[in-house]
Computed example of a mutant assay.
Amino acid sequence: MPLIQISQTAGLSDAVKRETIAAVTDAYAKATGKDPDSVWVTITEIPRSQWGVGGEPLG
């Protein structure tokens, strides 16, 4: 059972999360031939203060 994990800054609406999960599931199933019902997708929202780019925190 494939598991796709997405980490990103917080702020997506529930509707956008649903659309993202559906699109990622569809793309993975098409690319691999897997049954979409077996694909798991998680979205983890991480506060900007816990992200760093180029040695500097985002938040």
Rank of each mutant, 00 (worst) to 15 (best):
M1G: 07
L3M: 15
L3R: 02
L3Y: 11
L3V: 07
I4V: 01
I4H: 03
I4C: 04
Q5H: 15
Q5E: 15
Q5L: 14
I6T: 03
I6R: 09
T9V: 08
A10H: 14
A10M: 15
G11M: 06
L12Y: 08
L12A: 02
L12I: 01
S13T: 14
A15D: 13
A15S: 12
V16L: 06
K17G: 11
K17W: 06
K17P: 00
K17I: 09
K17D: 00
K17C: 01
R18P: 01
R18H: 02
E19C: 09
T20I: 04
T20A: 02
T20W: 10
I21E: 06
I21A: 01
A23W: 06
V24M: 02
V24T: 08
V24N: 05
T25R: 01
T25Q: 14
T25F: 04
T25M: 02
T25A: 11
A27H: 07
A27V: 06
A27P: 12
A27D: 03
A27R: 12
Y28I: 04
A29Y: 10
A29T: 09
A29W: 00
K30D: 12
K30P: 09
K30V: 02
A31W: 05
T32H: 07
T32Y: 00
T32E: 11
G33E: 03
D35Y: 03
D35Q: 03
D35E: 07
P36Q: 03
D37G: 08
D37W: 05
D37S: 15
S38V: 11
V39F: 01
V39A: 11
V39N: 02
W40F: 14
V41A: 01
V41Y: 04
I43P: 04
I43M: 07
T44R: 07
T44G: 11
E45C: 06
E45S: 09
I46D: 04
I46E: 04
I46V: 12
I46P: 13
I46F: 02
P47D: 01
R48I: 10
R48V: 01
S49I: 13
S49V: 07
S49D: 13
S49M: 07
Q50P: 12
Q50V: 12
W51I: 06
W51M: 07
G52W: 11
V53C: 09
V53Y: 12
V53D: 03
V53F: 04
G54I: 11
G55L: 00
G55D: 03
G55C: 08
E56H: 15
E56M: 15
P57N: 11
P57T: 13
P57D: 02
P57W: 01
L58I: 10
L58R: 14
G59Q: 02
